[in-house]
């Protein structure tokens, strides 16, 4: 498997009014093509910053970031981004929102209309293409944001807590939906690579091939866990013993709890 992202000793310090703040330190991570990687960690562990460093939106201060074999020094157009808020343009129709990346990238939006319609159909929103964002629910808006990120068929998707603002039920639905869309929008080079930031341990376990657990101030990689749950994953996956075990392991890593203490809890889950 070829690596699409290679982070080598990445560090980032930024200046604030009260002095420099170290946001990231010595981040090493290699992500293979088509992998689904989640970054979990408490607030302030720099996971969102790391995502933006990978996209070239924020400058690192040490180390190197290589995406698709090319060192990142400025924003790279090979990524699709989805944020916690859908950030749709409220004066545009849903279709025109999905088409925005084509316009911003200086392409002819007309050539992408068919693709935009296909994407909206993929997420079940074809009937809404003429509506305005405020006519859609939060979950629907986030689906539109996903379509927008996928429009130019980027090999890499960067998602920053995309479902963090949704209620629990919608969130679970969106997780399933994302995996389905991920499976169905392979393209010529196979599945897209996804870097996914989340606060939610179950979400990270459910979606990912690997989970990167980060610790705060400065943001560092505490541990990288392989999630060997079979795909395709379904609602039943969440009920499996392995799912519980992975979740608990991550919980232990994040809270610093000794795994010995978790023995009885694990038996209970089994």
């Amino acid at each position: 498997m070829k690596n699409i992202i290679e982070l080598d000793q990445v560090g980032m310090v930024y200046e604030t009014g009260s002095g420099p703040v170290e946001a990231l330190r010595d981040i090493n991570l290699a992500v293979g093509e088509g992998e689904f990687i989640s970054l979990v960690g408490p607030s302030g562990c720099g996971k969102s910053t790391l995502l933006r460093v990978v996209a070239g939106l924020r400058p690192m201060t040490s180390g190197s970031v290589i995406v698709g074999g090319v060192p990142v020094t400025k924003p790279i157009p090979k990524v699709g981004m989805v944020f916690q808020a859908a950030v749709l343009l409220k004066w545009r129709s849903i279709l025109d929102n999905v088409l925005l990346p084509a316009e911003l990238a200086g392409l002819n939006a007309r050539d992408y209309r068919t693709r935009a319609h296909e994407l909206l159909e993929l997420v079940g929103l074809s009937d809404f293409s003429g509506k305005r964002p405020n006519e859609l629910s939060g979950g629907m808006q986030q689906r539109v944001a996903l379509c927008r990120a996928l429009l130019l068929d980027p090999p890499l998707l960067l998602m920053d807590e995309p479902f963090g603002a949704l209620d629990a039920m919608t969130r679970d639905d969106m997780n399933l939906e994302l995996l389905r869309v991920w499976g169905e929008t392979g393209g010529s080079e196979g599945r897209k690579t996804i870097l996914f930031v989340t606060h939610s341990i179950p979400e990270a376990v459910f979606l990912s091939d690997r989970v990167v657990v980060m610790s705060p101030r400065p943001g560092r990689v505490a541990e990288v866990l392989d999630i060997n749950l079979p795909r395709p994953r379904s609602v039943e996956t969440r009920a499996s013993a392995e799912f519980g075990k992975y979740s608990l392991d991550i919980y232990d890593l994040l809270t610093g709890r000794q795994s010995g203490e978790s023995g009885s809890a694990l038996q209970g889950l089994g």
Partner: peptide
């Protein structure tokens, strides 16, 4: 975030 969207596409 909206502005980042613009930056990504240069």
């Amino acid at each position: 975030d909206m502005l980042d969207l613009g930056r990504v596409f240069n």
